[in-house]
Simulated assay, not measured.
Amino acid sequence: MPLDQIGQTLASFYDALVAEGIPEHLAALVRQVRQADGADADGAAAGPHASCAREPRLALVVEDDPQVRALAEALLEETELGVVGCDSAEAALDVLQARGGEVALVFADVRLAGEMDGLQLARAVATLWPRARLVITSGRSVSRPEVPDQAVFIPKPWRALDVLVEAERAASDPHPPLP
C-alpha cells in the first residue's frame, strides 16, 4: 500500500474521531502523559536528566481487520507507547518472543487470522508475560471464564477513550520483566 494512501486512511480515521469529539479527551490524556514524563506541552524535555532515553515500551495490537487495526494503532501512537500491529496470534507471539520485555500492553481481538484466537493468545500472555496489560475485545459476547482473570474486556465497538485509559495504565506500570 503506498505511503500516501496510508496517510489518507489515517486522516479519515482521525476525521471520524474529531466528529465524535474524542480528540479533546485524547489531547488531555496526552498532556497528562507528557506531564508525568517531565515534558512540556510541546513535548520538549524539561530538566537536565529528562533527555535520557528510557527503554521503549510497546503496545501490541492484534486484530485481523486491517481498518480496525490501523485505527487502534493510530490511536495508541498518540500515547508514549511504541506500537506494533499483527493480524494473528502467531505473529504476536513472534513479537513477544523477540521483544516481550518491552511489551506493556496487548490489545487483542478474539477472532484473529491464523490457528489461535485472541483468548488463546491472552492465556499465553498471562502465563509467559504476566506483567503485560491484557485487553481483549470482541463484537460478540465473551463469558468471563474464557477471559484470563488479569485481562480487561472491552466490547466492540470500543470507545477510543477506553483504549487510551488502558494504554495509560499499561504505560504507568513498572517495566515488565524480561521473559
Rank of each mutant, 00 (worst) to 15 (best):
A45R: 06
A46H: 14
A46F: 09
G47T: 10
G47Y: 02
S51W: 00
S51I: 08
C52I: 14
C52V: 14
A53Y: 11
A53G: 13
R54W: 02
R54H: 14
L58Q: 03
L60Q: 12
V62S: 08
E63I: 00
D64L: 04
D64P: 01
D65W: 03
P66F: 05
P66S: 13
Q67C: 11
V68P: 10
R69P: 02
R69I: 07
A70Q: 12
A72K: 07
A72G: 06
L75S: 05
L76W: 11
E77L: 12
E78P: 02
E80Y: 08
E80R: 13
L81Q: 12
G82F: 14
V83P: 06
G85W: 10
D87N: 13
E90C: 05
E90S: 05
A91Q: 12
A92V: 14
L93A: 08
L93M: 14
V95H: 12
V95M: 07
V95Q: 09
A98F: 00
G100W: 09
V103S: 08
A104V: 11
A104H: 09
A108V: 15
A108H: 04
D109A: 14
V110F: 03
R111I: 15
A124H: 13
V125G: 05
V125D: 03
A126P: 04
P130V: 03
P130A: 03
P130N: 07
R131L: 10
R133L: 09
L134N: 06
L134M: 04
I136S: 01
G139L: 03
G139H: 14
V142Q: 03
P145G: 12
P148M: 06
D149C: 05
A151P: 08
F153M: 09
F153E: 11
A160P: 00
L161I: 09
L161G: 02
D162E: 11
V163Q: 00
V165T: 09
E166Q: 10
E168V: 10
E168K: 08
E168A: 05
R169P: 01
R169N: 08
A170D: 03
A170E: 07
A171M: 02
H175I: 06
